[in-house]
Amino acid sequence: MSVTVDEIKAGKAVSPGWVAQLPLSGKLGLGLVIFWIATAIAGPWLAPYDPGAFTHQDVFASFGAAHWLGSDYLGRDVLSRVLSGARYSVGLAAAAAIAASCTGTGLALIAALAPRWLDELLSRFIDTLISIPSKIFALVLVAAVGSSLLLLFLIAAFIYIPGAYRIARSQAVNLAQMDYVQVARTRGEKAAYIAIREILPNMLHPMLADFGLRFVFIVLMLSGLSFLGLGVQPPDADLGSLVRENISGLGEAAPAILVPALAIATLTVGVNLLIDALPRRHGSKEG
């Protein structure tokens, strides 16, 4: 988990005063992201009850002193379940989104600078992947291999690589035509230098925005899989499965469904607010 956090931080580190320079929406987003990362790390220790234990007489109980956020459809403590569920949503979805965005961007840079035939080959291959229905693909794999966290991570990452690749390639192909890239080529630079130092810094911002979207999609996809019983396996539950399993509480406006839904909303909105507020022109790091 901490690796993920470091990766996110490293991508954003611009200058010492960068937090102060963020607009209000960015500070709000940053606050939400930090809150959720902290929850994902410390949640299980903060949980007042065992998330799997039946601790309340009533199902769908409302806010109360003993159970701050009430109880769920089986009488379990909602606060404890949200605190321990956050790590699946934040960790699994973020890791998968990072893997998808990085792989997609990397392949796109190769396609933009490689000879035409390799670009064609790669792009047509990715087109083939796009044509596979993602839910069916996930179902087949889970049915064949059996659900595990690693498999869910791999499936989520694999399904969202083609989309990230498409966005990144259109960026990279345009940037590869820029005059400063031509100058670097006539300087005799190797393709790796051009990709990493000349092109990548200028496509970072759109790719971060794309990452935010993909993160939201993956959270939703994982909860969809959980609903079918193929995602994170009970008694563990990610935020999405908390919403799904308590869906019958919707009529009673039970906290059991409101709180996890609110949790997903604040998490995804926070990530996107922060990414939108990052400085447009990235200062490059020494490397």
Partner: peptide
């Protein structure tokens, strides 16, 4: 490469905005 250098018309696009 070193002995022949190319300078483009438009410095806005010839200088990488991400670099100092």
């Amino acid at each position: 490469f070193r002995r022949i250098q190319l300078v483009f018309q438009n410095a806005d696009t010839a200088l990488n905005p991400a670099h100092s």
